[in-house]
């Protein structure tokens, strides 16, 4: 399972969960099978419009199964549903803890 977290920083050791989804700074992806961490700047961060949709497109291209974030708008929700990506919202705190809890 591949878990993506909207993150405030690139380094998963220190990053916090960014409450914004579409315009978060980074996406940190954790693969529960390989134990591998990867980090990407959010390509939709400065989009003129439809940031969430572009962000979901990016996560879909990274074969993400679950998204962990603070808040999702209607465009994000419907795009995630269409992509078959599950979402866990209302998450705050450190990315490390968020991933640990999501994996359980």
């Amino acid at each position: 399972m591949r878990i993506a977290v909207s993150a405030t920083e690139a380094d998963y050791n220190v990053a916090g969960v960014d409450p914004r989804f579409g315009r978060c700074s980074f996406f940190i992806i954790y693969d529960t099978e390989t134990g591998e961490w990867s980090s990407f700047p959010n390509p939709a961060k400065d989009a003129v419009g439809g940031a969430a949709i572009k962000a979901v497109e990016f996560l879909k291209s990274k074969n993400v199964d679950v998204v962990v974030t603070g808040n999702l708008g209607p465009n994000a929700t419907s795009s995630l549903t269409a992509a078959g990506i599950r979402a866990i919202t209302g998450v705050t705190g450190k990315v490390l803890n968020a991933v640990k809890r999501a994996g359980e």
């Binding site: 989009a47 003129v48 419009g49 439809g50 940031a51 949709i53 572009k54 979901v56 497109e57 879909k60 465009n75 419907s78 795009s79 549903t81 269409a82 992509a83 078959g84």
Partner: peptide, 23 residues
């Protein structure tokens, strides 16, 4: 279609396509 759209108004899912009219 989603690639051609300059405004991100189309999202292509696994077995559905979302059109965002407002964009």
């Amino acid at each position: 279609c989603a690639k051609a759209c300059e405004f991100g108004a189309i999202f292509v899912g696994t077995n559905t396509v979302n059109v965002f009219e407002k964009l």
